[in-house]
């Protein structure tokens, strides 16, 4: 199942703003781009619902949510 496409769509239309979605890199810093603590929780709920995973609150660390690629890695870790 493709995780990155729906995740990118959700993050870049709901949680952070960028002038051109297509130009936002998968390694760009989401926290620098403005993702706040409420956004992080919203993201976790989205991932749990869409990808049928459980993402423990205790694992919410900068390294897990820093970029689209980091998020994909974190979700895939819990899909195993």
């Amino acid at each position: 199942m493709d995780i990155k496409t729906p995740l990118r769509q959700f993050v870049l239309t709901e949680l952070v703003y960028c002038d051109d979605i297509n130009n936002f890199g998968d390694t760009e810093d989401l926290l620098e781009a403005g993702m706040d603590s409420m956004g992080i929780m919203r993201l976790i709920m989205f991932a749990e619902r869409e990808f049928k995973v459980t993402l423990p609150d205790t694992e919410v660390e900068p390294d897990s949510v820093r970029s689209i690629n980091a998020l994909v890695g974190w979700i895939e870790e819990h899909k195993k």
Partner: peptide
């Protein structure tokens, strides 16, 4: 901010 992260985690700073 470090206390906040330690106490409630990154997702709940407010």
């Amino acid at each position: 901010m470090a206390k906040a992260t330690e106490t409630v985690g990154m997702g709940y700073k407010s």
